[in-house]
Amino acid sequence: MLFRQLEYLVALSREHHFARAAQACHVSQPALSEALRKLEEELDVQLVRRGRKYEGLTPEGERIVVWAQRILADRDALKDEVGALRTGLSGRMRIGSVPTASGAVSLLTAPFTAAHPLVTVEVVTDLRSQDILRQLRNFEIDAGITYLRPGLPENVATLPLYQERYVLLTSAADDLARRASATWAEASLLPLCLLTEAMQGRQVVDQVFAEAGLRPVPRVETDSVATLFAHVRTGNWASVVPHTWLHVFGVPHGMRALPLVDPVRAVPVGLVVTAREPGSAMARALTEVARHTDVAGALERLPGAPDLP
């Protein structure tokens, strides 16, 4: 059995298509198919359901994929560990983030890359919380930044980073803009642009509205926090955004950011990694940086933002 054969199987499971899997692995489709046939012969079990086109993996194949992902992750972790012992940590670290937390990612990547100059960081910021947990489980990312909600899997280790709070982002011409804060009830009466319902950041906002007996219906929905800012900029919309995004944009000209009160809500956000030993050298290094970085303090010192309660 070769690592290459396991890589092909994992790629096929991810791409659901022989040609795309072969392209992802930089080999021809016949070479990938033949390697998988030899793996089936060696394991003496059918892994792929074959017809006129790819029809999926067999139940045995699905199970072997889990082992393949684990073996390949351990191989990569071993290479990182040996490299770190010889010349310092090097390679690529993959971080997944929920969109609402992506504005805070740079507070970790900056000190991390300074401490480990041979590492390249890849950040994916359009993931839902469940996507992050799935990709951690499948060893597709080394770490994630997401909401630390109850019921996280036991095989996930967490490190709290900050408390996410919410501001009403509105046009400076709006009557509310002269106020020091706004209530959730007042926000519900405005033409709102919010994240889509599938995103946990939106679910948190909906929960706060519901607890106040409110159910606003946004006229525009998006999966991008930056798009929320763009819509508010037109003067036609208001939005509820995490205070962390003011760290990225400040309060743009022509807008106001008002802390939302009645109630004041804070939701914990943190770093999540797979709780395995010895685990990923990349994840351990990032966790160490996070332990010594005051992310919450940095997010409270927002240029041009109002004092938050």
Rank of each mutant, 00 (worst) to 15 (best):
M1H: 12
R4C: 00
V10S: 04
H16P: 00
H17Q: 10
R37G: 03
K38L: 06
E40A: 08
L43C: 05
V45R: 13
R49C: 11
R50V: 15
G51C: 08
P59Y: 09
E60M: 13
G61F: 05
G61W: 06
I71A: 12
L72M: 00
V82H: 09
A84Q: 14
L89C: 10
R94E: 08
S97N: 05
T100V: 14
S102K: 07
G103E: 13
T109D: 06
T109F: 14
A110H: 15
A110Y: 09
P117T: 15
V124D: 13
R128P: 00
I132D: 01
I132T: 00
L136T: 02
L136F: 01
G144I: 00
I145W: 02
R149K: 08
L152T: 04
L152P: 10
L152E: 06
A157F: 00
L161Q: 02
L169A: 14
T170V: 15
A172L: 12
R178I: 02
R179D: 10
R179I: 03
S181F: 11
T183D: 06
W184K: 11
W184E: 10
E186V: 04
L192V: 11
C193K: 06
E197I: 03
R202P: 01
Q203D: 04
Q203H: 01
V205Q: 08
V208N: 02
A210I: 05
A210E: 12
P216M: 10
E221N: 04
E221Q: 12
T227W: 06
L228R: 09
R233E: 12
G235S: 08
G235Q: 07
W237S: 00
P242D: 01
H243Q: 15
H243A: 14
T244R: 06
W245H: 15
W245D: 14
H247N: 13
P252D: 10
H253M: 15
L258N: 09
L260G: 05
L260F: 10
P263A: 14
A266N: 07
V267S: 06
P268G: 02
P268S: 10
V269S: 02
E277F: 06
E277C: 03
A290D: 00
R291V: 05
H292C: 01
A296T: 03
E300F: 00
L302Q: 15
G304K: 12
